[in-house]
Design a binder for these strands. Sequence first.
DNA 1: AACAACGTCAACCGCCTGGGC
DNA 2: AGCCCAGGCGGTTGACGTTGT
Length: 224
Amino acid sequence: MRKPCCEKQDTNKGAWSKQEDQKLIEYIQRNGTGCWRTLPQAAGLLRCGKSCRLRWNNYLRPDLKRGNFAEDEEDLIIKLHALLGNRWSLIAGRLPGRTDNEVKNYWNSHLRRKLINMGIDPTKHRLSQNLTHPQIIGATGSATSSASRDHACQPLKTKGDHDQVSDAASCLEDATWGLPDLNLDLRLTAPQSIAIVEEESKQNESTMSRKVESTPPRTLVLFR
DNA sequence: AACAACGTCAACCGCCTGGGC
DNA sequence: AGCCCAGGCGGTTGACGTTGT
């Protein structure tokens, strides 16, 4: 039986107060994040380390963008979701200033519904069969190439194969599926990155990091 | 005005993975 | 090789706000 990440008693739960935020920010600004498990005590917070990490990563980090998603961000999320499935951290990694939680929430509350309304199955990114004349108006009110295709790739299987994105790469390579104008360029720059497209050929390199650098795609042409 | 239904999003939970020993 | 730990991930929950009746 795994030990809990922290002692459940004596820890606050639920929404963070301004004072707690302030303590966390001040501590991290002074000392960096370091070990999340010991951070709460060191920072004088009655929170578990996980909670602190989540709060910092999803809300307090200074580089977070917040606010509404731009149309190109929406398009990119939809296309990446078609490619990667519910791998929110990977998707968020391509959206500077956005967190996986934010992307996931936005997908579930906005984009999923939007695709459904357009007659597109949001999980498979295919046209729903019960719609004879779907309104293909695109992810952000305009056409989304990936979603309107007949031969959309299945999203990748998730659990247990976090880095097995080579299928996605082969989808990318599949010209018939293609996103002909979308160069996602999932190859990421060293050292802390996954060369997703080349993943398969590098599978033996066991020290592959799961981290994906949050650099924007070098080329992104969206068609509407 | 009051209530219900629905939508949004911050936060939690449990599981998985990789690294260290 | 196997265990333990910390960090990370995706799914889910629940509080709160908004909209509809």
